[in-house]
Amino acid sequence: MSNHDALLRVESINKTFITQSRGIRNENHAVKSLSFEIMRGEVFGLVGESGSGKSTIANLLMNLETLDSGEIIFDGNVIAASKGTPKFPYGDIQIVFQDPKSSLDPRMSVREIIEEPLRSVSIDRKKEFGSSSDVLKLIQAVGLREEHLDRKPHQFSGGQRQRIAIARALITRPKLVVLDEPTSALDISVQAQVINLLKAIQNEFGLTYLFISHNMGVVKYLCDRVGVLYQGELVEVETNERIFAAPKQDYTKKLLASVPNMFEDMEK
């Protein structure tokens, strides 16, 4: 694939957090000159343990943090850089968080929740996707029903709430969806339903995914290419087949070996 097929290009970005406690200055270099790109229509996986910089990358991509250096180019435009004030394409990039219990405002109805991202997109786009028939189509696409629209989040199970969060991410018809551990808080059987849904809507809505996870099983099933993060650095980026069959880096090997796999670990 050539370079202009990339939907997202992250170019040597850096982020350091400085905290001060009891007079001691503490520097945490969370992301270290990190580069990768995501092709259109691809599912790109980012795996790593706590402290690897996964969530910082998600925050940088969603314009929740500012870069120290480097730039992020989305769809041909610079959307984040250390200098200047690049315009962030709200609505074109959406995120689904891990915990659907706290990502939905308990005081809002499902309809209000799903329509919220339309607040900051253009009038044309709002007209195109904000109609109630479109909201209805969307809620059905994620496997819920019309009568659910007037209910509050606490009336739903964890899996249903994650469906609502997915519908909310889709309302603006984004090009890229960041999935930040979207199934980690769910039961196994519910996880399977949500993964199937993510797969189905990817085709239906022509989405590109950045899938952040520590669950190797899900990554192996869902991702086309996988990047392995360790202490803020990308130690290895490979295709799905290669990374699981022949990991090159020591850390990748250790990570994969640590995952207890019920299909291999039953020699007892």
């Binding site: 962030f88 990039i93 968080f97 607040r119 900051s120």
Partner: peptide, 10 residues
């Protein structure tokens, strides 16, 4: 997290 989500919508 719901306010964080709202911020990602701009």
């Amino acid at each position: 997290l719901y306010v964080k989500s709202a911020k990602t919508f701009g």
